[in-house]
Design a protein around this nucleic acid. Structure first.
Length: 507
RNA sequence: GGGCCGUUAGCUCAGUCGGUAGAGCAGCAGACUUUUAAUCUGUUGGUCGCAGGUUCGAUUCCUGCACGGCUCACCA
């Protein structure tokens, strides 16, 4: 609020609390102390004693020291009920003047919802049979000078929720739950791959040549070397260098950066799992992916069908598998084999049914993918593997042996969203070099997202990369699916927003 | 970037067919030793997102801007 030039007649809520800090200090009570050591987290109490009745608790000769934030306060003249929250749970605390003593109770009466406290006491059950800590002592650990949002409606304003995620996390249990799930998902994935002999690795985020995906990069500059660097759009080409180096089962779970639009499904930095398995084909990855996702679903929820928005997603095996062409023939209105066999007819079809402008060279592969994206994707609600992508849009994938116009590549769709993308890797350096050259041509004809030439990657392939299959899974989108979150911002702690305008609320 | 919608007290929201605003919760003062959105009494609090325009008068109407949401386009 004001800068104090004009003495405010009415104190702001914050000023009231700042004044309380001064008053406490005068009484020798610090507002920010760091000498309290809890003996338990709240979940320890809840897990062990939730089953104990009042009588049994009375016989328990034990005291507990607990710390956390006061998130509710129901105060009487000489007693009060507090709801204490820590990372692991919530527990009620009962504070009585005759238990904690007059002086401590007077200090306690100055506390506000939002303050962080430490309490020591014993367990009992209230009249309403709620497990409660009867406090022998209460100490203020951290004074909160800003008021929390309203106790009933909480914080709902999305902008504030994202900008001040800390408040969101204090107040909204369901938001906390999403992030606990996210962490659990990532942990389970690590375990899944480690158990299967994969090595977790880290490769450069800042790259002199970017590649591994079709996207525009963020550009930065290294001062000492005076060189341009790109934030990676994918780790792919580095991970495959590791496969060349003999690390034939690797995975990386980390951030990618793409300088593109922001939406409910896109954040400029997002988390990607990429893994590479030598002596395998994309067929092996289909099975592995299905196993992984099913493992996550059943471990997290103990069931196989999860809600997502309006849909109920059934994760039970086996998942549907079809080629791009098959999917188009099923879903694209009015499409026929005849059209797909003739590039001009495909072009006409795209003109009539969509308003997509093909960037770069028009080819049968690009047209097929355009038709697929426009007419098929959002119909793939239940988990579906789409296979056999055109070579023009798959510059790093191995060609299909029966039909070299297509590659041994797949994508996984769930709820109309692309969740995973994998393929048998192209390990022929001559073909790879030609594909890069083709990409350069695309770039010249206006496709800004076409690949750069990566000479060192070609050299690596020339040393020989074993036959390998690799895959990327978008962790944010996967988390969205597994937590029924309809915006990517709900699964990223601090999604990118424009800076808020300066307000006089700072300091 | 385009379209639509939103922005009023710390929070959640009303409201003003143009005459400078209300509620609940929170806060403050008081009562209260088993509450569960505790209760009861009293009470403070607002540059109505920002800047212009129209008007005697704008929080309200108009324009522009900022930020956000949804959506389209690009992508994962």
């Amino acid at each position: 609020m004001g800068d104090g030039e004009f003495m405010a007649e009415q104190d702001s809520l914050r000023d009231v609390r700042l004044k309380k800090i001064e008053e406490l200090k005068e009484q020798g009570v610090p507002a920010f102390r760091n000498d309290f050591r809890p003996t338990h987290q709240l979940k320890d109490i809840l897990e062990t004693y939730e089953a104990w009745d009042g009588e049994k608790l009375e016989g328990l000769d034990a005291t507990f020291s607990l710390a956390g934030r006061m998130v509710a306060l129901r105060s009487f003249g000489k007693a009060a009920f507090v709801k204490l929250m820590d990372m692991t749970g919530r527990l009620q605390v009962y504070v009585r003047k005759d238990k904690v003593g007059e002086a401590a109770f007077a200090v306690f009466k100055k506390l506000d919802v939002g303050d962080i406290i430490g309490v020591t006491g014993s367990l009992f059950r209230t009249r309403t049979n709620e497990l409660t800590l009867l406090a022998d002592s209460v100490v203020l650990l951290t004074k909160s000078v800003r008021p929390l949002p309203e106790k009933w409606h909480g914080l709902t304003d999305v902008e504030t929720r994202y900008r001040q995620r800390y408040v969101d996390l204090i107040v909204n249990q369901d938001v906390r739950e999403i992030f606990f799930k996210r962490s659990r998902i990532i942990g389970l994935i690590r375990q899944f791959f480690t158990e299967r002999g994969f090595l977790e690795v880290e490769t450069p985020m800042m790259q002199p040549v970017y590649g591994g995906a079709a996207a525009r990069p963020f550009v930065t500059h290294h001062n000492a070397l005076d060189m341009k660097l790109y934030l990676r759009i994918a780790p792919e080409l580095y991970l495959k260098r590791l496969v060349v180096g003999g690390f034939d089962r690797v995975f990386e779970l980390n951030r990618n950066f793409r300088n593109e639009g922001i939406s409910t499904q896109h954040n400029p930095e997002f988390t990607m799992l990429e893994f590479y398995l030598a002596y395998a084909t994309y067929h092996d990855l289909l099975d592995l992916t299905e196993t992984l996702v099913n493992h996550l679903v059943t471990t997290l929820y103990g069931k196989t069908t999860l809600p997502f928005g309006e849909h109920a997603i059934d994760y039970r095996s086996p998942w549907k598998r079809m080629t791009v062409k098959e999917a188009v023939l099923v879903h694209a209105p009015g499409i026929t084999e005849e059209i797909l066999g003739d590039i001009e007819k495909m072009e006409n079809y795209v003109h009539e049914k969509t308003d997509v402008e093909i960037s770069g060279t028009v080819s049968a592969g690009k047209l097929l993918m355009t038709i697929f994206e426009e007419t098929v994707e959002d119909k793939l609600i239940q988990p579906t593997f789409i296979t056999q992508y055109p070579v023009e849009v798959s510059p790093l994938s191995r060609r299909n042996e029966a039909d070299p116009a297509f590659t041994d590549r797949f994508e996984l769709f769930i709820a109309g969203r692309e969740i995973a993308n994998g393929f048998s890797e192209l390990n022929d350096p001559i073909d790879q070099k030609q594909r890069f050259l083709d990409q350069l041509k695309e770039r010249e004809t206006g496709d800004e997202e076409a690949h750069q030439m990566d000479e060192d990657y070609i050299r690596a392939l020339e040393y020989g990369m074993p036959p390998t299959a690799g895959e990327g899974i978008g962790i944010d989108r996967l988390t969205m699916l597994l937590t029924n979150a309809l915006s990517i911002r709900e699964v990223i702690f601090f999604p990118l927003l424009r800076p808020a305008k300066d307000t006089d609320d700072e300091i």
